[in-house]
Amino acid sequence: MSTSWPLWEVFIRPRRGLSHTHVGSVHAPDAAFAVRNARDLYTRRNEGVSIWVVPSAQITASSPDERDEFFDPAADKVYRHPTFYELPEEVRHL
């Protein structure tokens, strides 16, 4: 059994002005090769102008089981959204 190459998560910036977005993963022996493999795999049709790779094992994520206590408390803070506020129609630029 041969050594398997570690897994890397790939993030691509589709064009200037946009953030890097997760697109999938690649296997590569090291970071430099991971960038190249990601380039060859995920930008064959001009899909990107910049690539990040991160060892998959290095990602720390929130747990789906903590979802309620993580995200539900934000749901009732309606006053954070501009639509919460009623203004007279004649008011502009606000």
Partner: peptide
Amino acid sequence: PELEEDVALAN
């Protein structure tokens, strides 16, 4: 030797 290399060589 690896699928990623298939893609690279084809490029």
